[in-house]
């Protein structure tokens, strides 16, 4: 067909504005989703921080095998918690995707809207979860070393902690985006009529 159509424009600022409005309007739901992310990331960050501190303190044989196990498990918990929150958040909104399609949204527009929302939640959740987790990781070592010892230790290893925080944010972003992209893309492929009558 040659309808001779113009290129669609959907600028970054429009996408951000629409995504931001959606987060705001679903504030309570967004907080719950963010909490899921924060919990998963905090648990992991706490265990990683604990392992790091034990390593720096050189207590006995250093990091023990069970520590690696715990970190592995915490990764799985973070993965499960975050993907579950995001999958549910998209699933609740298939009808909304149908509305976007009826008023002329391209599949790619819709996916972009959801991804930006996931990014915003991922950055926030990763940052807060990382901070809380690192704080807890430090807290549980207060009985092993004095506050003074610990603060000297942390200061000399501050780059590692910052890297850990960055890693938390990156992980949260990757998990939220992936766990949003896959269902949002699938839902955007439904015909508008199917999406509108979708029951969850």
């Amino acid at each position: 067909m040659s309808l001779d159509l113009p290129e669609p424009k959907f600028s970054i600022s429009e996408v951000f504005y629409l995504s931001y409005s959606n987060i705001k309007r679903r504030f309570f739901r967004s907080v719950i989703t963010a909490l899921g992310i924060i919990l998963g990331i905090a648990f992991m960050a706490a265990l990683l921080t604990n392992s790091l501190i034990l390593d720096w303190l050189q207590t006995g044989s250093g990091v023990e095998a069970y520590q690696y196990w715990l970190v592995g498990i915490s990764l799985i918990v973070a993965f499960g918690g975050i993907t579950n929150s995001m999958l549910m958040a998209v699933n609740e909104r298939v009808k909304e995707i149908g509305v976007y399609k009826c008023i002329g949204g391209l599949d790619s527009h819709i996916v972009r809207l959801f991804i930006v929302e996931a990014l915003l939640l991922g950055i926030l959740g990763g940052f807060l979860g990382g901070i809380i987790g690192i704080g807890m990781g430090i807290g549980i070592n207060l009985n092993r070393a004095s506050l003074q010892e610990l603060s000297v230790l942390l200061e000399s290893n501050i780059t590692s902690l910052i890297l850990l925080l960055l890693a938390c944010i990156v992980l949260a972003i990757v998990l939220t985006s992936l766990a949003t992209f896959i269902p949002a893309r699938r839902a955007s492929k439904l015909s508008p009529a199917e999406a509108l009558r979708y029951e969850n």
Binding site: M1, L3, L5, P8, S21, N22, K24, R25, R26, K95, E96, G98, V99, Y100, K101, C102, I103, G104, G105, L106, P192, L196
Partner: peptide, 23 residues
């Protein structure tokens, strides 16, 4: 892409349940 254009420009839809975007 052309279908989206059609829904966007050629046809306006009205539903029993309004289907507005609540946000």
């Amino acid at each position: 892409y052309e279908l989206a254009w059609l829904r966007n420009r050629k046809i306006g839809y009205i539903f029993q349940t309004f289907n507005l975007l609540l946000a």
